[in-house]
Amino acid sequence: MYAFSYQRPTSLAEAVAAIQADEAKLLSGGQTLLPTLKQRLAQPSVLVDLSAVPDMKGVAAVDGGLTVGAFTRHAEVAHSDLVKATIPALAHLAEGIGDRQVRNMGTLGGSIANADPSADYPSAVVALKATLTTDRRAIAGDDFFTGMFETALEPGEIVTSVRFATPDKAAYAKFRNPASRYAIVGVFVAKFGAEVRVAVTGAAGSVFRVPAFEAALAANFKAEALNGLSVSADDLNADLHASADYRAHLVTVMAKRAVEAAG
């Protein structure tokens, strides 16, 4: 790692001030950022550690959903009785991230700000009609992910919390990379009354919805409603783990599994 200085602000205002410094970088759980720094792929002047900022941690029930603080660790979401009772699919998703030690450090805010194409949380943000709150505004989950490792965040903007809407039914099914546990393809299906959302992660540069699946499931919320439907392999990721065609195949399989799990 290149040398940097370090700050641990104790209020959001202090964090906002600290992150204005040239080449300053936010540090949340560090599970992505520290390996990046160890490889000398970035050279920040200062790390602004968010761990002591109050009001960025924990889960709270709000009208029609749940608010999860950006600094809430994956393990806390996975084990939260409130999440398990309100949106069990979200707890299940969090429990499937990486391994136990990664879940004990990694956070929701760090995961979505990083916008890894294979990360799990982006699918929940889109499928569960989330709204993100930052130090300066609210951003609709639908508008947040703009590309591979790219988001709608402005330089120095801090995500403080994410509000997820409670669906009638939902489930997340992922075909994981057996070594890293990242999603080769992950599909989050959520039903809100007559509306169904299907959000796919891992398959392309960024999370996307599948309108044809959504319409079929809105008419008949059964796995067989997806028989014969598939996404095009054009523009899907291809790497040593899976070809684009295989990923396209997995999108339908994982969507069916999610519908079955949602019940």
């Binding site: 370090y6 641990r8 540090l27 560090g30 599970q31 520290l34 390996p35 790390l47 550690d49 761990s51 393990a75 391994d99 136990r100 030690q101 990664v102 004990n104 450090m105």
Partner: peptide, 22 residues
């Protein structure tokens, strides 16, 4: 690999991916 796992406030973490200052 997890060879570096220690407990921080009772939770297991990978100490190679954690700053001492954290």
């Amino acid at each position: 690999c997890g060879a570096c796992v220690v407990h921080v406030d009772g939770r297991s973490v990978k100490s190679c991916a954690t700053l001492a200052l954290q």
